[in-house]
Amino acid sequence: MLELKLVKESLFLNVLEAILDLVAVASVSCSSTGLKLQAMDAKGVAFISLLIPAKEFQFYHCDKDLSMGIAIGDMVEAIRSADKDGTITIKASDENFRNITVSIESPECNETTSFSLLLVTLKRFCIPELQGLLKKYDACVQMPSVDFMRICKYLSNVDGDVDISTIDKGIRFFALGKCGCLNVKYMQPEKATDIDISVQAPVSLTLDLKYMNSFAKVSALSNQVKLCLSKGQPLVVQCKIGQKTKSRIIYLLAPKIKG
């Protein structure tokens, strides 16, 4: 049986809200240690992996490992109507493993709304072990998420693709659209401690811009974001969620390749 409880204004829900423009259904695995969510966008271009340890929830109990396909779009839609201080309880039982129950309790505890959400069938993906994969990556950029968001905002003025390339002591974002082009150079400053650009080998990736803007939304939930690039490999964008938590979100974005 699984039971987890959270307040409406929790980070978990904010994260779900932020990923909804990319995905509507997700594979959610729960164990005694916490919750993992994996989802791929409808076009099969981006992949999201979210990890939230059990202690981040107001209440968390899972006595048996569970894996389920959840229409998170429908779930978030229902939760949106709840009072902002309301408490949300999500339950799945072993006896009837075809749906989950989401209950919303008002702050005064005088009103409870429950709805049953049918589970969906989804493929599970075996992604390579990420820390091992990233050791082989050519370049990593740790930067404040406000910088990343600003760069994505600049890029959103151009409609098309973005090339992210390593340059001497930094990286370059270059976008070419119908109305012109945009060039952002982001360098390693001499003193700042919250920027760390490490390049093992030169690399350049071409990526679909619209996904970058979705990624920027989630990085708003964290101070720092890390981008990792490697030739012919997906761009990895990872960030911790919140300040003192071990929750983290990782995006993988497939590059454009020579056709």
Binding site: G44, V45, F47, R124, Q233, K256
Partner: peptide, 14 residues
């Protein structure tokens, strides 16, 4: 000309 690769090309399914 560049074409979009699929993310599934980078990992297997089960």
């Amino acid at each position: 000309v560049r074409k979009q690769s699929q993310i599934t090309a980078f990992f297997s399914t089960s």
